[in-house]
Write a protein that binds this DNA or RNA. Structure first.
Length: 738
DNA sequence: AGCACGCCGACT
DNA sequence: GTCGGCGTGCTC
């Protein structure tokens, strides 16, 4: 191909790990004015073609004109992303120092990344053909599923929605097969479902109390412009009612609401309440959906048919036709931070998105992150606080159990056992929290001190007694129990330390007539096992509930009047500077599960450090007092939210190589920027994982721009002299240091 | 990320 | 003599 003259070029973000764009000649037959940012393009790339994202039309190419190739095709009539969306993605790529093409790609569902059409397939329904209507059912004597479906269709006034097919047969699969056969035989046919949603039972709004009304009014006054609100309220204070009323008003304005929650397990309850109360099409968006469902939800929201989108982290990038509000529930939750690849914080992206789209953002929590509390102090967020509702959910009473030099029975002190006994006698339920699954975190030889360790990680193997397995909680390694010590041959291997399985066993021994249930990743592995356990708790069949942090999230246990936290200290003494914040949040969240009915709850905390100042502060002044104290410490140490951080991670089969790589980064950057402080390189807290060595280099600065300049600089050098033997990644605003 | 190109070891 | 290992360079 010959290029006669220099023309305008299209700048395209191609999804490869490179920090630059690629320029193309406009595709043939497309006017320049139609080439809008956000369009998906099919472009030749090397010896194949890729889907790329149009960033801009530029006057002059960044490369030699002779190298330019024309883009093959434009994949959308109009960009699926708005200008604001494009700006948001560009901001995110810059802020997190992640390749632009990959950021764009991650904002799209897989089908659209692959270049499939964005045509919305209308929801389909099944209806009888005249032949089907005239059919005598007994013909289908030997096909009960088809006959049942036929009967359903006969009774239906409207085409039967494909999405509800599963309700008609023994399984979704059987119903689908039956539908296919009916269509094949000419008795039924697929038609587009008529517009409009299928009417659902809508419940009237609950009356709001004064604080809720004030919160709703404050947010409502900001509809149509930016404002960030921190909605603070303990469990049961009615945050959800505030969300619902605000969403109702947003929807009434013809706008859309994006609701972000930390995990899928929290969505069923919120989804149900939204469906009951908001008279508008709603969709969910999370990793549990298949790609067809994800694409449908994404496009539905993008086109404006879906008015409320309830989703997890990745939903923060789903385009909105008419942006109305963003709601972030449980904003303190760490799962809003993506921990691999493009390590963005959905919380921070949501705030930026609200700002760019000029809409309000409501972040709710009983235990706000220190970042958000700081933002309130700086006047960036407006605090809306909901006191506990009168007569409901009285603040729990906290009590420390000093377990220094006390004998514990499988992690339970005498005082705790007595309190459990008393609570059970009064007819209450008990919730015990231990953030360690398995039977024991170690298996030790009593003869020689040998400890079972993972061959591929710097970690002990965890004993799972029931299955008689030793498992590594950091890789896939799993072994049977050795009959004798592999080191000295003695037959005296003993479990060391306690995990939930061990406490579970002890509780069953101590309270043989009481139903005990354990909730952790091991006991809830099956698809419905968690729901089944929760059901038994609500029925009162289970009266002692024991679990890991899975317990702290979402689920309500109104019958629980005693909460026991078995090991508070594990959280307060850690190298991670956020450990105390996390632990305090966990304590308050777990405590919030108790006494939600009319009965007040008691929270017992077992500790060997009853004088720990932060623990004292938490018990005396509650979470706000703790947060104030912890903020003061962070400020003194220039830690977030008072200082800014980034973390370079490196991984290699050889620790030295990973360390050398980071050392090189530091050497090349040091001295250039006095405002940046460096720590490391140092081996990660657990240096070896799954056979690979990990090292990290920590950057701190009081000035965000200085930090970012340093990162930009280092990345530019890495582009010039790439490092291929070391896998590295960059984490801006890291929350976990592992 | 892919993919091609290119330079050194054990095999039909 | 060649098939194939993965180091290096490139993609507009």
């Amino acid at each position: 191909m010959t290029i006669s003259r220099t023309e305008k070029v299209v700048r395209v973000a191609v999804p490869i790990p490179a920090y630059r764009c690629f320029d193309y000649l406009p595709p043939s037959g497309v006017g320049l004015s139609d080439l809008l940012p956000g369009l998906r393009l099919r472009v030749p790339f090397g010896n194949r073609t890729r889907v790329g994202y149009l960033i801009a039309v530029a006057e002059t190419p960044e490369c030699d004109v002779a190298r330019l190739r024309p883009a093959e095709a434009v994949l959308d009539d109009k960009p699926l992303l708005s200008e604001t969306d494009v700006k948001l993605l560009q901001w995110a790529a810059r802020y997190y120092h992640h390749p632009l093409g990959e950021v764009f790609q991650l904002a799209f569902p897989v089908h659209l990344r692959e270049g499939r059409s964005a045509e919305v397939t209308r929801p389909q329904g099944l209806t009888l053909t005249p032949a089907g209507a005239a059919l005598d059912p007994p013909v289908l004597k030997r096909a009960p599923a088809q006959r049942m479906l036929l009967e359903t269709l006969r009774g239906a006034e409207y085409p039967f929605p494909a999405s509800r097919l599963a309700e008609t047969g023994s399984s979704a699969r059987a119903a689908q097969d039956a539908a296919r056969r009916l269509v094949e035989r000419g008795w039924a046919e697929w038609v587009d479902l008529p517009d409009g949603r299928i009417p659902a039972a809508i419940r009237p709004p609950l009356p709001l109390n004064v604080a809720q009304r004030a919160a709703v009014d404050a947010v409502s006054a900001h509809l149509g412009r930016y404002g960030a609100f921190l909605l603070e309220g303990v469990t049961g204070s009615g945050k959800t009612e505030v969300y619902l009323e605000v969403i109702r008003r947003v929807v009434a304005r013809g706008e859309q609401a994006l609701v972000l929650v930390p995990e899928i397990s929290l969505t069923p309850q919120l989804e149900q309440r939204l469906r009951e109360r908001i008279e508008a099409p709603l969709a969910v968006f999370h990793s549990g959906l298949n790609e067809t469902e994800r694409t449908a939800a994404w496009l539905g929201f993008q086109q404006g048919d879906i008015r409320v989108l309830l989703g997890t982290r990745s939903a923060v990038f789903v385009p909105m036709r008419r942006p109305g509000i963003i709601i972030l529930d449980e904003e303190h939750d760490r799962s809003f931070k993506q921990q691999e690849g493009f390590r963005f914080s959905a919380r921070d992206v949501a705030v930026m998105r609200a700002r760019m789209a000029d809409i309000p953002l409501v972040a709710g929590s009983a235990t706000p992150s220190l970042e958000s509390i700081r933002n309130v102090q700086r006047g960036r967020y407006v605090r809306l606080s909901l006191p506990a509702r009168a007569g409901v959910a009285v603040e729990p009473r906290y009590r420390l159990l000093d377990i220094r030099s006390r004998r514990l029975q499988e992690g339970l002190s005498e005082a705790l056992i007595a309190a459990i006994r008393e609570t059970l006698a009064e007819g209450g339920q008990v919730l015990l929290f231990l953030n360690r699954r398995g039977f024991a975190p170690a298996l030790i030889c009593h003869g020689c001190g040998w400890v079972a360790q993972c061959r591929r990680c710097d970690a002990n193997l965890v004993l799972h007694a029931r299955e008689a397995r030793l498992r590594c909680h950091h890789c896939a390694a799993e072994h049977g129990l050795p009959p004798r010590c592999p080191s000295c041959g003695q037959e005296d291997l003993r479990p060391l330390g306690i995990g939930t399985e061990r406490v579970d066993q002890a509780l069953q021994r101590l309270f043989p007539e009481i139903g005990v249930a354990r909730i952790d990743r091991d006991s809830t592995r099956g698809r419905h096992s968690l729901a089944r356990i929760l059901e038994r708790v609500h029925q009162g069949e289970v009266r002692i509930l024991l679990g890991t942090q899975m317990l702290a999230k979402g689920h309500h246990f109104p019958g629980v009047t005693l909460v026991g936290i078995l090991d508070v200290d594990a959280g307060f003494y850690s190298t991670d500077f956020r450990a105390a914040e996390h632990t305090a949040q966990l304590i308050v969240q777990v405590a919030g599960r108790a006494g939600r009915g009319e009965k007040p709850g008691t929270v017992l905390l077992q500790t060997r450090h009853p004088d720990h100042p932060l623990l004292q502060r938490l018990l005396r002044d509650g979470y706000p007092g703790f947060a104030a104290a912890e903020l003061a410490e962070r400020e003194a140490a220039c830690l977030p939210p008072f200082g800014y951080q980034a973390l370079w991670r490196a991984e290699s089969k050889d620790l030295g190589r990973a360390m050398d790589f980071l050392a090189r980064l530091r050497e090349e950057a040091e001295g250039k920027n006095g405002a940046v402080h460096w720590l490391g390189p140092a081996p990660a807290p657990m240096p070896r994982q799954a056979g690979r060595y990990r090292a990290q280099l920590w950057l701190k600065s009081a000035r965000r721009e200085a930090l970012h300049a340093s990162l930009t600089d280092a990345l530019a050098r890495l582009q010039e002299t790439p490092e291929r033997r070391v896998r590295w990644s960059l984490d801006v605003d890291p929350v976990d240091f592992y």
